[in-house]
């Protein structure tokens, strides 16, 4: 498989008056063409900042301090303003979490889908219009030629998310970044949107980076998973292996705090404690204060991300010593 994206040692820090917040602190991963990668973790662990860094959309006082993100051989992080603008929406498109607030209330749906195509000289006005109507039909919006001239407030949440997907697909991007695309939707609509995303992915062959904290959605949709904790990678694995036996204690914690309807457990096991402050992360392994398997070494030295199997990497001392147990 051909490699599309290779991120190496990406570090994005926020330089605040009270100190440096290391929101993303050295993450590396690769994504092949047509593949989908789930990035999982708790709120505030650096998932969103990590992907926003790829298209240089980190808000002040955040700054990418180090790293490389090779997208088809070109480093996204080194690109100039105009160069990266041409990448955004054209080669890499985004789908945002909340469709209710992600559409401009003063522009018609049609304009919002066609404009990126015009910005990127992807198509002429007439072609863009035709393509937009086609896309609206493809994402399952009934009577698209009519909806084309309507405004966002005339759409329901699920319909807006379909529109967002149509917008993202407009310029045939090679990579779609979906930042919790189903979090703001209710469960029945979630399933439809995931189905739609899968269909679009299969039809167009784009790769997908999906940020989510919904393990069910991730397991359903993605080929690979990367678990982040406190700005660092805890574990990377192919999805089916990960679901079978998560390796990092934190990953197991995530699993245990997820409802499993097939195996009616009495209760959920939440991970005790709260994520650490990224202003002043704990020494050693950042997860050790909350880890039930912590050893002496965990509070002293930070574990490296080591390979424990094909396509599997874990940053944990227990795994380093005895491989992946359970």
């Amino acid at each position: 498989m051909e490699e599309l994206l290779r991120v190496t040692n990406l570090k994005t820090h926020f330089f605040r008056p009270d100190g440096v917040v290391r929101a993303v602190d050295g993450i590396s991963y690769t994504l092949n063409k047509g593949e989908s990668l789930a990035i999982m973790g708790e709120s505030g662990c650096g998932k969103s900042v990590g992907v926003m860094s790829l298209i240089q959309l980190v808000r002040k006082p955040g700054r990418i301090v180090e790293g490389q993100a090779l997208f088809e051989g070109r480093d996204l992080l080194k690109m100039g303003k105009e160069e990266i603008r041409q990448i955004r929406g054209h080669c890499i498109a985004m789908i945002f979490q909340d469709p209710m607030t992600s559409l401009n209330p003063t522009l018609t749906i049609g304009k919002q889908i066609t404009e990126p195509m015009l910005w990127h000289n992807y198509a002429g006005r007439q072609e863009a219009r035709e393509r937009a109507i086609k896309l609206l039909a493809a994402v399952g919006i009934p009577s698209p030629w009519q909806r084309f001239t309507e405004y966002p407030f005339q759409f329901s949440g699920g319909m807006k998310q379909r529109v967002m997907i149509a917008m993202a697909l407009a310029c045939e991007p090679r990579l779609i970044i979906a930042d919790e695309p189903t979090t703001a939707l209710d469960v029945t609509v979630q399933a439809q949107i995931i189905d739609l995303l899968r269909r679009m992915k299969e039809e167009t062959g784009t790769s997908v980076l999906m940020i989510t904290h919904d393990l069910g959605v991730a397991a359903d949709f993605c080929d690979k998973v990367m678990v982040m904790y406190a700005g660092r990678v805890a574990e990377q694995a192919p999805m089916d292996e990960f679901v079978e036996r998560p390796c990092h204690p934190y990953s197991r914690g995530l699993m245990n705090s997820t409802l499993d309807l097939g195996r009616l457990k009495g209760r959920l096991d939440p991970i005790p404690g709260a994520p650490p402050s990224l202003l002043n992360p704990p020494a050693g392994c950042r997860f050790h204060p909350r880890c039930s398997e912590a050893m002496a070494v965990c509070s002293e030295k930070e574990p490296e991300l080591v390979e424990v199997g094909p396509g599997r990497k874990v940053a944990c001392w227990t795994a380093e010593k005895e491989g992946c147990k359970n």
């Binding site: 054209h90 086609k134 001239t149 090679r174």
Partner: peptide, 21 residues
């Protein structure tokens, strides 16, 4: 690298009247 979309369903026929938003 932007693979052409082949699988998109064709645009549906335009309705007679167009309603403005």
């Amino acid at each position: 690298a932007c693979a052409p979309h082949s699988g998109l369903s064709p645009a549906p026929a335009k309705a007679a009247g167009r309603v403005r938003g």
